[in-house]
Structure formats: C-alpha cells, structure tokens
Design a protein around this nucleic acid. Structure first.
Length: 216
DNA sequence: TGCCAGGCCCTCTTTAGGGCCTT
C-alpha cells in the first residue's frame, strides 16, 4: 500500500533566498488512510526569530538555542522520509525550505510535492477559506490543540489529505486515489477537472492518472 | 518593528492587477 509523507515547516520568515531558515519540522507518514509514523524536531540554524513569529508559533529563540543543529535534523528527516512522495499545505512554501535546507547538507530532492491547498480548491470549491485550519473546520476533521507547530500542522494536513482522497473516491467511485492522481488533479484546470474524472468512471480499464494526463 | 516572495486564481482579464496562502 502506498505511503506518503506529509510535512510542515516552521521558519523565521517566508523567503529562504533572503536568509530565512527553518526552525522546526514535522513529518507524518500516512498509509491506507492512517497515520503510521511521526517525526518532529526543532532545529537550530543560528538565525534569529522575529518577535511576531515567536508569538505566532510559540517557538522562541531560547528554545532554538537548546535545539539540535539544523544539519543534523535535516539529515535525520531526509532519512526518515527517504524517497516517499511529499505532501504539504501550500506546498510551494514548504518545498522552498525543504530544497534549501537539503541543499545545505548536500542533498537533493527527487520526489514530487503534492499541495493540499491546490487539491482542496478543486475538490472542495464550496469551502469559505483555504487556510489549513479553516479547511479542517469546514470538513469536520479533528483540529490540533496547538496550530502553527510543525507536527500539529502536519497532522492536520494529513487528515485533510485523507479527506480529499476519500471525497474523490466517493464522488467519482474510484477504487483509490494515489499521490500521482492528486498531483495530476492539482495541475488540472478547475474547469476541466469534473469532465476528466467523469470520463475516468466511464473508462474503468484506464488508470485515472493516465486519463487526466491525456485530457489535461 | 514590520515586512519580505512567489505561485495560483479570479476578474471590472489576457498588453493586468490584486487577493489568498505559507512563516
């Protein structure tokens, strides 16, 4: 059964190219709709956390001074994730930091990222907001006790991923929704998604991902 | 102290602009 790695970073800011660094990472492994493993660690990259981000996340500069070095943490988490497909909410953000922090230890990402924000916009078009917490509330999924911490946000994104997969399976009578199909869905224009998946139902002999590729 | 960027998406669009989302 397919295993995916849902990740979330807390950081000092928005732009690694301007010196922002990761301060914490959380990873949740999901298999067959269930969380099967977790990884979380603060990481000390020697970068000061602005006060408003300390307030936002609860991660303080004092906490980072006692945290393991970023390089050590990234080596551990790269080993934990290995080549598993990656998922994140607003993945363009986490992808930037994942690639930047990996590059600092001489590693390079080989797998794709799936973005739950882009998939949710297509699968849940009636949602009032696409913030992670708002989608969790909208879908009636369990909310984390402390948002804006890496593992809590990764767990919420994992629950959202499973909800999106199950919604697609029920709506389109699909046997399964692998990460490759989620990847195709996030790249398919919203206006084309419904007819593409409807044709999937009418062509049971063809794999959903190949159908989306051909029609997109 | 507060902001930073960038991809996506919508519309009063496409020769553009602005909001959302992430910390």
């Amino acid at each position: 059964m397919e295993t995916i790695a849902v990740i979330d970073f807390e950081t000092t800011g928005l732009v690694p190219a301007q010196g922002d660094r990761a301060t914490e990472i959380g990873v949740v492994l999901v298999r067959d709709g269930q969380i099967v493993d977790r990884y979380q660690s603060l990481m000390n990259a020697g970068r000061h956390i602005p006060a408003f981000i300390e307030h936002l996340t609860g991660i303080t500069n004092a906490m980072l001074r006692a945290a393991p070095p970023a390089a050590q943490v990234m080596a551990e988490v790269a080993d934990f994730v290995s080549a598993l497909p990656l998922v994140a909410h607003n993945a363009s953000f986490d992808r930037k930091f994942w690639d930047a922090e990996l590059a600092r230890i001489g590693h390079e990402r080989t797998q794709d990222f799936v973005c739950t924000l882009l998939v949710a916009k297509r699968v849940l078009p009636e949602a009032p907001s696409y913030k992670l917490g708002s989608l969790i509330a909208f879908a009636g999924l369990p909310a984390a006790a402390r948002a804006h911490r890496a593992l809590a946000d990764a767990e919420m994104a994992a629950h959202l991923t499973v909800h999106l997969q199950r919604t697609l399976m029920e709506r389109f009578e699909l046997a399964g929704v692998p990460h490759t199909l989620l990847g195709r869905i996030q790249k398919t224009p919203k206006s084309q998604l419904e007819p593409c998946l409807r044709r999937t139902i009418a062509s049971p002999g063809r794999a959903p991902s190949s159908l989306i590729t051909a029609d997109a």
